[in-house]
Amino acid sequence: MPPRVSNWGWTPAGRRRYLLILLWMGHGAWVLVGPRPGHLWSRLAGRLARPAEGLASRWEAWRTGRQDRARSLAQLQAENAALRAQVAALQMAEAQQAPRVAEAGEALKLLGLRQQIPLALVGARVIFSTRPEAFGGLILAGGRDRGFVPDQGVIAPGGVVGRLWSVGATQSKVLPADAPNASVGVMLARSRATGVLQGLGGGRALIRYLSNQEVVQVGEAVYTSGLDQVFPRGLLVGYVTDVEKGELELRVTVQLAAPLDRLHFVLVLPPQPPLEVQPPLLPQTAPAPASPRRTP
C-alpha cells in the first residue's frame, strides 16, 4: 500500500490550496470590514469602468440620433405626401380651368381687335366645327336673333376667318376662307396688286387674277382689299408661301393667318362695311405735373 501523500504540505497542490484559502478568506474579511476603506477601490473601479461607460454613452447617443433621424424622416415623408396631394389637386384644378383660361385669353384678344376696328362688331362663340369634313365650316351661336345676315365677314385676332354662309334662327354657318367655294378680295402688301382669294383647304388659299408682271415675294403679307364689300380694306388674311408663274397669271399660294381649327370666339363684321376704316386714335393722357403738390 503506497504511503498517503498529504495535501497540506509545501507542494504545488498544497500551495494552490493555501492560495485558494487565502483568496477566499481574504475576500470574506474584506466583506466583513465594511464600506469604510472602499473609496479607493471605488475610484479604481470607476476608472476601470470608463471604457464601458463611454461605450454606453455612445450607444445612447446613437440610439437618440437614430430616433431623431427616424422622426424627421417620418415628418418629411408625411409632408411630401401632403404636398403631393396638394400638387395633384392643383393640377386637377388647372386642367379644369385650362379651357376657360384659353377662352379668356382669346376673348381678351377679341376685345383688343374690337377696339382697333371702329365698326359695330358682334362677338360670337364657335359652338361646333365641321372643318375636317369636305366643305366643312364653323357653326356660330347666333343667327337671325342677333341680326346676322348672310355674307357678313367673320374675323378673328389672327386674321380673316370667312363669311357667314347661311343664317338660321339661332345659329349661323361660316364659310371659311380656305373653302374651295370661298372668295375674298385681297391685296398684296408691297405691290398693292389686288386679286381674289380662292380656298385650297387645309388653311391654304390661292390668289387668282394676278398678272404675270407683278413681283411677289414669299413671306409677303396679304390683306383684304375691300372690293368684295364683305371685309374692309387692310385686314390681315395670310402670308405668301409659294409663287409660280403661269401662262396668263401668277399662282400665289397663301397660308391663312387665322387658326381656323382652334377658334372659340370670332367677331362678325356689319353687312357691307365701308371700303376703308381708320383705327381710332389713342386717347391722349394729361401731362403729369412737374412736381407733386404736397398736402399740408
Binding site: 475576500h27 464600506p35 477601490w41 469602468a49
Partner: peptide, 13 residues
Amino acid sequence: AARLYPHMGGTPW
C-alpha cells in the same frame, strides 16, 4: 462595472 456599492467585494466572495 456596476459601481453602485459603497464597499465592493461581496459579489466576488
